[in-house]
């Protein structure tokens, strides 16, 4: 094998690795959205803003009391759960019962919530870019592979690796939670048929609070894991809300395995697209895939949509 070919392979593998690691984080964002959309048919346009809130909590914990971002997960997850459940209980549920000309009032409500959150962040923290400068932010693990006589050196960014592992862990935990626990079964029942679930004695309103809380906690975890490797600024939410939609639609609403797959596909697509096609159009790939999947595979890549 020539060194040129080895270089090409090295680049390709490196891009794939970066894509998969990024995809793990995307999966986490998508899981939260998928849960919310699948169970409540709610389109949450404040999803990215919830992630932003988590990032600022992580930032505060780090800069004020020097809590490591991975430790602050223990603060962020409950905090975001409470915020999410509260939003659902006091704002979204009341709106869902009201008749209006446009059936999408609930969506616009989440837009309003998003505007309030991002502007509050701007008032409190200003629009400046902030970061969580952990010591291991650029720590990299190398792995040398021997391919046909040539050594290929692959690098793994440490924070991304940890984020990927935690994302997969949380995804698996969610899968077990929905499959094995009573509350998980109630959530699935509510997603399948809300009225039938209510007749069976499930407090469906409480289930919607819990579900929204879980969705918020999951995207919050993504925010915390992203904090060491990304900038934090008030308007960061918007692009991630779009990504969450793309992932959810790719995987099929409410499909846990689908959301993980959707996240990986988007991560890989962005990473491969930006290297081999065009960096400028990186974000466009997701949107094009989104529209194509909506039209041709309305139930997502896995072809089924249930929790």
């Amino acid at each position: 094998m020539t060194p040129q070919l080895a270089g090409q392979i090295e680049l390709f593998l490196q891009v794939v690795i970066a894509g998969i690691l990024l995809g793990g984080l995307y999966s986490l964002i998508g899981l939260g959205m998928s849960l919310i959309m699948g169970v409540m048919r709610i389109i949450n346009l404040a999803h990215g803003e919830l992630m932003m809130v988590a990032m600022y909590i992580t930032y505060l914990a780090f800069s004020l009391v020097h809590v490591d971002p991975y430790v602050s997960l223990f603060i962020v997850l409950p905090a975001l759960f409470l915020i999410g459940a509260g939003l659902q209980k006091y704002l979204i549920t009341p709106v869902m019962d009201v008749e209006s000309v446009l059936p999408q009032n609930q969506v616009l409500l989440t837009v309003g919530i998003g505007i309030v959150l991002s502007n509050l962040a701007q008032l409190i923290f200003s629009a400046d870019y902030m970061s969580v400068p952990v010591s291991y932010a650029s720590k990299t693990i190398y792995w040398d592979v021997n391919v046909g006589g040539q050594t290929i050196s692959l690098s793994f960014n440490f924070p991304f690796l940890v984020a990927f592992a935690i994302a997969i862990g949380l995804g698996a935990a969610l899968f077990l939670f929905l499959g094995k626990t009573d509350i998980g079964r109630m959530i699935r029942a509510t997603a399948q048929d809300k009225r039938a679930a209510a007749i069976m004695g499930i407090n469906t309103k409480r289930i919607t609070y819990i579900t929204f809380g879980l969705g918020a906690a999951l995207v919050g975890a993504a925010g915390t894991l992203l904090a060491p490797v990304y900038y934090i600024y008030p308007a960061i939410g918007g692009p991630f809300t779009s990504k969450a939609f793309i992932i959810t639609v790719l995987g099929g609403m409410g499909n846990i395995a689908g959301a993980v797959l959707g996240g990986l596909v988007l991560g890989l697509g962005e990473s491969l697209g930006s290297v081999y096609i065009s960096l400028g159009y990186k974000d466009a790939f997701g949107f094009v895939i989104f529209v194509l999947v909506l039209i041709f595979l309305p139930k997502g890549l896995l072809g089924k949509s249930s929790v």
Binding site: V95, L109, G112, N119, Q122
Partner: peptide, 27 residues
Amino acid sequence: YVGSGHLVFFGVLIIVIILFFPNGIVG
């Protein structure tokens, strides 16, 4: 008066309108 982040008031207004006047002011 507020500078950056001023849209927070508009956001609150939107939430209040959707909660209490689901069809808007004129509606």
